[in-house]
């Protein structure tokens, strides 16, 4: 199986490391010979139809910051041209999230389908804004579209709901889908510190981003809730339809107050019948949704299995790449059947 990787940042590098680590495993278990035929970043691409030397690619990126500096096979060809002209089974899209336009990822995904490739993405932007449009391209070109890593990082949720829980109707999903806000609230609660202090500390530790707006405003959670609503619950909603409240107004006093009543406060994303919202909620201290630190958690309410709860790591290079790898394997197995 041949893949093209778009984006060579935290996740892109994580994917390459995971592929290197699992090379033998994939061969032995699935008989799969996984080759990365192109890697792209903002500088251009490295292309080798017989498979790139992944260690070399990582070293070049580390030393020069530019994949186009890959010896002999580096190029400054625009990414869209790479997608169109290089033959591959699947495209792995790991470029930055843009929650206003979904670009450039949206274009990359569509070009991927148009040129006959299956697509895997970790990117919330295009999914939250153009889910149905992207899905219609996948259908039109008869390709597989997978996006497990886009919600909850390593925590399995989309494929769990669509495949493992097949036959169940899912009536409600709620949970903590953003690790940064969970980290901040957990720390404020434990150490009785105010929001700004904890945010600054989280930024220094690299847990919160330099621009944490999307996380703390609830926008990131809203994008994920929209993806779940559309992909699992067959709704047709966009991020503009979500009622959003962030965590910037939460105080340590409010957390103590909640604790006195047997609760904690968590930023919860919720989708259900007539409900699409993100906001701080009181969660009983002994509730399974009360997970600490930067963990993510989701509860799916289903007609047959009733409540199903998953907990996992919502971010991290190797962790998130595990979800991408599971999508790669799934596509490999399915396309073998498709012939």
């Amino acid at each position: 199986m041949k893949v093209i990787l778009l984006g060579f940042g935290i996740i892109g590098k994580g994917v390459i490391n995971v592929i290197r680590k699992k090379k033998e495993y994939l061969k032995n278990k699935y008989g799969m010979d996984l080759k990365v035929v192109a890697i792209c970043d903002r500088s251009g691409a490295a292309i080798d139809e017989n498979g790139l030397d992944l260690e070399l690619a990582l070293r070049v990126k580390e030393e020069t910051g530019k994949i186009s500096k890959y010896p002999e096979k580096g190029t400054s060809l625009p990414i869209v041209e790479v997608i169109k002209s290089i033959e591959a089974d699947a495209l792995i899209e790991a470029t930055p999230t843009n929650i206003e336009s979904g670009e450039p990822a949206k274009t990359y995904i569509i070009e991927g389908f148009k040129s006959g490739k299956h697509v895997i993405t970790a990117n919330k932007g295009p999914l939250a804004l153009y889910f149905n449009e992207l899905l219609s391209y996948a259908k039109k070109y008869d390709r597989i579209f997978r996006y497990e890593a886009s919600v909850g990082g390593a925590m399995p949720i989309i494929n769990l709901a669509k495949e493992t829980l097949a036959g169940n109707e899912i009536t409600e999903i709620k949970g903590i889908l953003n690790g940064t806000t969970n980290y901040i609230l957990t720390k404020m609660e434990r150490e009785k510190l105010d929001f700004d202090t904890v945010l600054k500390e989280a930024q220094e530790l690299g847990i919160a981003e330099t621009n944490p707006h999307q996380d703390i405003s609830g926008l990131d959670t809203a994008a994920k809730i929209v993806i779940l609503a559309n992909s699992i619950m067959n709704m047709e909603v966009t991020i503009r339809g979500v009622n959003i409240e962030g965590i910037t107004k939460i105080t340590p006093e409010a957390l103590s107050m909640a604790n006195k009543g047997g609760y904690t406060i968590k930023l919860i994303g919720e989708v259900g019948e007539n409900k699409l919202e993100v906001g701080p909620k009181l969660i009983p201290l002994d509730d399974p949704l009360n997970v600490k630190g930067s963990l993510n958690v989701a509860m799916l309410n289903t007609d047959l299995a009733k409540e199903v709860i998953v907990v996992g790591r919502g971010a991290g290079d190797v962790e998130t790449s595990s979800a991408i790898l599971s999508d790669i394997i799934n596509i490999y197995l399915k396309s073998k059947k498709m012939g």
């Binding site: 909640a258 701080p280 909620k281 009181l282 969660i283 009983p284």
Partner: peptide, 11 residues
């Protein structure tokens, strides 16, 4: 909205 209060509810 009127009083600029944030109500955090239980489920």
């Amino acid at each position: 909205k009127e009083k600029n209060l944030l109500f955090i509810k239980s489920f």
